[in-house]
Design a protein around this nucleic acid. Structure first.
Lengths: 335, 335
DNA sequence: ACCGATCGTTGAAACGCTTCGACGATCGAT
DNA sequence: ATCGATCGTCGAAGCGTTTCAACGATCGGT
C-alpha cells in the first residue's frame, strides 16, 4: 500500500505539502503541485480511508436506509438505491446499505461510530419509525418522501399534488368533466403510505374545487379484482370519460387489458393518464401518458441537499421536485 | 461522542484494559470485565470506525458489486443484495454498495483505500470483467455465480446441474420420456450468461445419457413469442409430456396462461417444473413445482466463506449449494 | 537598503484505537 | 523460604492523515 509518505518522498516534498497539494486547501506553487499529483498518480496513491476518517472530519460515506416491505415494488426500490449511489459517487461519496431489520439499530450504530457523514432515508412513510430516530441522532439527514410531521427535517419528493393537478388540468382542458382515479389496494391507504394518500387527497380536493365529477376507487392487485373495479366504473350510469391511474404496474396493465377486451379504445373512447409511476408506461399497449416518479431526479436533489449542508444537518425544509408530463397519446377529448 | 478513554475512566482502568476486555483478546479478571462492559453500555460506547480501521486490521465492511444489466430481474437482484447484507450483519459487517458503472473503478478504489476487508461479487457471468480485477487485487473475495475460468477464485452457486438432474429424475420416475426445456431469450446464451448455459448444457447431456427425447427452445419475453414457442412445441408430431422451465417470471406465467387457454390441464395433460427460479411459483395458477434459487442460502455460504478466511483470501474452490425440490403438484405421470 | 506583507513549505500535534512489551502480584512446585 | 510460571493490568508506540503554527524566501513600498 502506498502512503502519503511515499508520495512525499517521490515528489521530494513534505507530507503536509502533499496533503495541501492534493486537497487544494492552501496555495501551492504550480510546479510543486504538478510534481505531487504526478507522483501520486504514478504510485497509484489512494488515501487510507481509516486515517482520513480519523484525522479529517469526513468519512466520504453516506448511509442509505431502504426498508423492503412486503408490498415494495422491487424495481423501483432498486432504482432509488442506485440513483442515490450514483449521485453520491459524483461527490466522491460511497453508500453504506442499511437493511430493514437494521433500520433503527443500524442507524444508531453507524452514527455513533462516526462511520458516515450523513444519511439518506428512502421510501419514507407517513409515520415512519426512522423519522424520530434521525431527528434525535442529529446526523445530517435527508428524507426521500414526506412524513406527517416534518419538524426539523429536510425532505425531498416529487410534487405529487402538482402532478395530480397537471393531469387533471390536461383532461379538463380537453373537455373532460367526469374523471375516475384508480388507486392502490385499501391496505396501502390504511397504513398511512405517503404518496398514495397525497395523490388521493389532492385528486379529491382539486377536482372538487373545479366542480368536476370525480370518483376514487381502490383496487386489489389480482387480475380479477382489477377487472371488477374497472367494470363497476364503466357500468355506472354516467361512466367517467377519463382515468387517472396511480397503482402498481400489473394493475395498470390489467386495466388496459380489460379495456381492450371490452373493445374500449384509448384514447378515443376513454382517456388514461398514469401518475407517479416508476415503470415504463410507453411499453404498455397502448402506451400511456405519464407523470413519472423519476428516481434520479429526486435522489439527485436529495444528495445535493445533503452535500451542500455538510458537515451540518441541512436546513429543515420540504423540497418538491416539479412533475413533468410525458405524452404518448393516451388522452383525447371525451367522445 | 464517547471514546475508549471515557470508558476507561468510568471503569477505573486503563484504555488497554478496556480494549482487551471488550475484544477478549487477553484474559481479564471477570470482575474487571464486568466493570468495563457495564461502563461501555452505560455510556453507549461505540468504537470510532476510523480509529479502528487505522489501528486494527479490520474495517468491518464488505464491498458488494451487483451490476444492474438491462435484463436484470430487479426483485432477485435486490434479494441477493439484501441476503448478503443480512448475512454480513450477523458477523458485524456492513455493506458498501458498488454500482455498476463503478464495478471496476470502485473496486480498485475501495481496495487501495483499505475501506473494506473483502468483496462479494454478485451475479457473475461467464466472462466477467470483474473477475480478472479481483484476481489482481488480492483482496479477499467470494463470487456468487461461476465464471468460465475459476482459477484462484472462491465461488458459490446453486448446483444448477444437480437441479436439472433432480427435475429430470422426478419426471422419468413418473414415466416421462419426452421433455422440453423452455429457456431464456437467445441473447442471454449468446452473451455467455452463466447459469442459463449451465442448465441448458446439463439438460442436454443428462437427458441424452438417459436416452430421453429432449428438446431445448429459447423464447423471447413478450407474450406473443412465448405463445408461439409453446404452440410450436405442442403442435409437434410427438409433443413433450413435460416442461422444464428456466426463464423469467413473466415467461413462465405466459406459458401457463397459454396452456390454460388451450384447455391443457397441469399436471393431468402436461407436467411442468420450474428450475432455478427466484420468484414464488406457488402463486402461479396452477402453482408450479420448483427447484428454487434461494438468495439467502447462497449468500449465507458466500459470506461465511469470506468471514472464515479473513484476513486472507479464501482458498480457491467452487462451492455448490445443494438444490431442493419443492412440490406443488404440477407433475404427474404422462397421460 | 530596510521593513512588513505575502507566499510556499515544513515539522509536529492530534484524531481513537489496537497491540506489544513490561511489570507487579499470585501461586504451585521445589 | 525461594524460584519460575502464570495472570491481570498498564504505558507507550504506531497506524496515515489533516491542519495549525511557524519559518524562510520573495517582493513591493518607502
Amino acid at each position: 500500500m502506498t502512503t502519503i509518505h511515499d508520495v512525499a518522498r517521490a515528489a521530494g516534498v513534505s507530507i503536509s505539502t502533499v496533503s495541501y497539494a492534493l486537497s487544494g486547501k492552501r496555495s501551492i506553487a504550480e510546479t510543486t503541485r504538478r510534481r505531487v499529483t504526478d507522483a501520486a498518480s504514478r504510485l497509484g496513491y489512494q488515501p487510507h480511508a481509516g486515517a482520513r476518517m480519523m484525522a479529517g472530519t469526513r468519512t466520504q460515506i453516506f448511509a442509505v436506509t431502504a426498508p423492503l416491505r412486503h408490498d415494495t415494488y422491487a424495481p423501483a426500490h432498486m432504482a432509488f438505491v442506485l440513483a442515490v449511489a450514483t449521485a453520491a459517487r459524483r461527490h466522491d461519496y460511497d453508500i453504506l446499505l442499511l437493511t430493514e431489520d437494521e433500520a433503527t439499530k443500524g442507524l444508531s450504530r453507524v452514527a455513533s461510530s462516526r462511520l458516515v457523514d450523513g444519511v439518506i432515508v428512502l421510501d419514507v412513510s407517513a409515520h415512519d419509525e426512522r423519522v424520530d430516530l434521525v431527528r434525535s441522532l442529529g446526523l445530517p439527514t435527508v428524507l426521500v418522501g414526506i412524513p406527517d410531521d416534518t419538524t426539523d427535517l429536510a425532505c425531498v419528493d416529487l410534487d405529487f399534488e402538482a402532478a395530480v393537478r397537471l393531469a387533471v388540468d390536461r383532461l379538463t382542458a380537453l373537455g373532460h368533466r367526469r374523471i375516475a382515479h384508480i388507486g392502490h389496494p385499501q391496505e396501502i391507504y390504511d397504513r398511512g403510505s405517503n404518496f398514495p394518500l397525497r395523490v388521493r387527497t389532492e385528486f379529491g380536493s382539486y377536482t372538487g374545487g373545479l366542480g368536476l365529477e370525480a370518483v376514487f376507487v381502490t383496487s386489489e392487485t389480482d387480475g380479477a379484482s382489477v377487472r371488477a373495479t374497472v367494470k363497476a366504473l364503466l357500468d355506472a350510469d354516467e361512466p367517467p370519460t377519463a382515468l387517472l391511474l396511480h397503482a402498481q404496474e400489473s394493475v395498470q396493465a390489467g386495466v388496459l387489458g380489460y379495456l381492450a377486451e371490452r373493445g374500449i379504445s384509448v384514447p378515443r373512447d376513454l382517456s388514461v393518464i398514469s401518475v407517479g409511476s416508476t415503470f415504463d408506461t410507453s411499453r404498455f399497449e397502448p402506451a400511456l401518458d405519464v407523470i413519472p416518479l423519476v428516481a434520479t431526479a429526486t435522489c439527485d436533489v436529495a444528495v445535493d441537499l445533503l452535500i451542500d449542508s455538510l458537515p451540518f444537518p441541512p436546513t429543515p425544509r420540504v423540497q418538491y421536485v416539479a412533475p413533468e408530463y410525458r405524452s404518448f397519446d393516451s388522452v383525447a377529448p371525451p367522445p
